[in-house]
Amino acid sequence: MIHTLYLSLTLAAFWLLNSGHYSPLILSLGAISIAFVVYLAHKMDVVDHEAQPVHLTLKLPGYYFWLTQQIILANISVVKHIWLGNKTITPTMTTVKSSQKTDMGKVIYANSITLTPGTIAVDLIGDQIIVHSLLSENIEALKAGEMDRRVRQLEH
């Protein structure tokens, strides 16, 4: 029930922020489309804690802030190596262990790996993530486990 409410609120906010016209006709059309989308989501059976992670709402901003810093640092190193050329890159492919318990934690971890330039999560088998990285240092940084620890804290 709380997930239905959360989904409707998110959709309503999305509609109101994007529309910019607040006449009764447009607002009622918006209400009808929100009801239709919520009905469709129920029919597809996707209204649950995975699609609407309500319990993460308070913890996510801190993680996003940290992730943004990591993305900026990684960007600088990848840009440097693009201009330095092919001789300076050391492409590596290896597996990294993820210590998250839930599926969602693993997906957040793999997605963060892919979003950070220089590392791409190629596949996820059990609790092993196959990672391709542009530099071998990136893999060592991942294996040190800072990101893993932060995602695990996010989980509960």
């Binding site: 993305i71 900026i72 990848v78 693009i82 492409p91 330039p117």
Partner: peptide
């Protein structure tokens, strides 16, 4: 190769 090119695309898509 393809996998290293993905890193270049990832730079231009995020930052």
């Amino acid at each position: 190769d393809f996998y290293t090119r993905m890193h270049a695309v990832s730079v231009s898509e995020t930052s």
